[in-house]
C-alpha cells in the first residue's frame, strides 16, 4: 500500500458523484474507489449517460462531489487553490468554444497562463513549451490560423496542445475523439500514447473506442450502474468484465477477437 501510494497521482475515496439542483442532490454514481498511477494512460469506458463526464468533471474540480474525497498527490483536492490546481491538472472538455478571433497560437498560449506573470508575458520558456506542444500534436503549420477555420480533428489536436502547454502532470480528456473519423481517432490515441511514453505524464481519457482503448491504454476503468472496475485490459478481458459494459441483448464481448460483436 505504501509503495502504491508513492506512485499514485490521484485517488478517490468512496466518491459519490452527481448534481445538486433545487437543494436536492441527483445521484449519478456511488462508491467509486480508484487510483491513477503516475505515467500511465488510462481509458474510462462506460455506456452513454453512465456518468463518465460527471466523474471527470468532479475529479478535475469543475463540479463538487456529493460525498467522498479526492486526493491529488495525497492532498485533498479542496485544499488546492484554483491557481495551484491549474498547475496540477489540465483539461480537454467536450463543450464548444465561444466564437472569438483567437489564433491557434494564442489559444495554445492560454495554456501557459498559470505560469505567466500578471500581464501574461510569454517568456522564452513559455514559447518553447508552446512550440513543443504544437510539434507533438503536429499542428505547427496551423499556428497563425484562427481556430474557427479548423476542422474538428485539427481543433481537437489544438485543444490537446493547449492542455500540453499547460504542462501539468495529469491531463484529463473528455471524449476527445467524438465526431472524429477512424483515421483522426487513431491519430489522437497515438499522440496521447506517445505523450505518456515520452513525457511521463498521466493521461485519463473517456472514450467509446473500446478497441483502441484495449490496444493503447495501460489500464481501463470500466463504469457500469453497479460497479467500477479498473485493471489492465488483459485482466479485464480474462475476468469477463467487458460483458458488464452493455446490456447483453444485442452485443456481446468476444474474448478471442478482443472486441464487441453482434449476437
Amino acid at each position: 500500500m505504501i509503495m502504491e501510494s508513492t506512485n499514485t497521482i490521484l485517488r478517490t475515496e468512496n466518491l459519490h458523484i452527481g448534481y445538486t439542483a433545487k437543494k436536492k442532490s441527483i445521484s449519478v454514481a456511488k462508491n467509486i474507489n480508484f487510483h491513477l498511477q503516475k505515467g500511465s494512460f488510462v481509458a474510462l469506458l462506460g455506456k452513454n449517460g453512465i456518468g463518465k463526464s460527471t466523474l471527470l468533471r468532479t475529479i478535475s474540480n469543475v463540479q463538487k462531489p456529493l460525498e467522498g474525497a479526492i486526493f491529488m498527490d495525497e492532498k485533498p483536492l479542496e485544499s488546492y487553490s484554483t491557481k495551484s490546481l491549474a498547475t496540477a491538472i489540465s483539461l480537454v472538455l467536450t463543450e464548444r468554444l465561444p466564437e472569438s478571433q483567437l489564433t491557434v497560437f494564442e489559444l495554445i498560449a492560454l495554456g501557459r497562463q498559470p505560469h505567466t506573470n500578471w500581464v501574461d508575458q510569454l517568456t522564452p520558456l513559455d514559447v518553447e513549451k508552446i512550440e513543443t506542444a504544437m510539434t507533438l500534436t503536429e499542428i505547427t503549420h496551423l499556428s497563425n490560423q484562427r481556430y474557427y477555420e479548423l476542422s474538428d480533428g485539427q481543433l481537437q489536436r489544438v485543444l490537446i496542445a493547449r492542455a500540453l502547454a499547460q504542462d501539468t502532470p495529469l491531463i484529463i480528456l473528455d471524449e476527445p475523439t467524438a465526431h472524429l473519423d477512424l483515421h483522426h481517432t487513431l491519430q489522437i490515441f497515438k499522440v496521447l500514447k506517445k505523450l505518456v511514453s515520452e513525457t511521463s505524464k498521466t493521461i485519463l481519457i473517456s472514450t467509446h473506442e473500446v478497441n483502441l482503448a484495449i490496444k493503447f491504454s495501460d489500464e481501463i476503468a470500466l463504469m457500469t450502474e453497479n460497479s467500477f472496475h479498473k485493471d489492465s485490459p488483459k485482466n479485464l478481458i480474462e475476468n469477463n468484465i467487458f460483458d458488464t459494459l452493455f446490456p447483453d441483448e444485442i452485443i456481446r464481448f468476444d474474448k478471442t477477437l478482443q472486441q464487441f460483436v453482434m449476437k
Binding site: 490546481l85 498547475t87 483539461l91 463543450e95 465561444p98 494564442e106 492560454l110 498559470p114 500578471w118
Partner: peptide, 24 residues
C-alpha cells in the same frame, strides 16, 4: 481592469476552461 486583464483572454474559452487555467 489591470488585475483581470489576463483572465479576460482565458474567459474567451468559456468559464470551465478559464477555471482550469487558475482563474477565480
Amino acid at each position: 481592469i489591470f488585475p483581470i486583464l489576463k483572465s479576460l483572454n482565458s474567459l474567451l474559452l468559456g468559464e470551465n476552461y478559464a477555471k482550469s487555467l487558475g482563474i477565480p
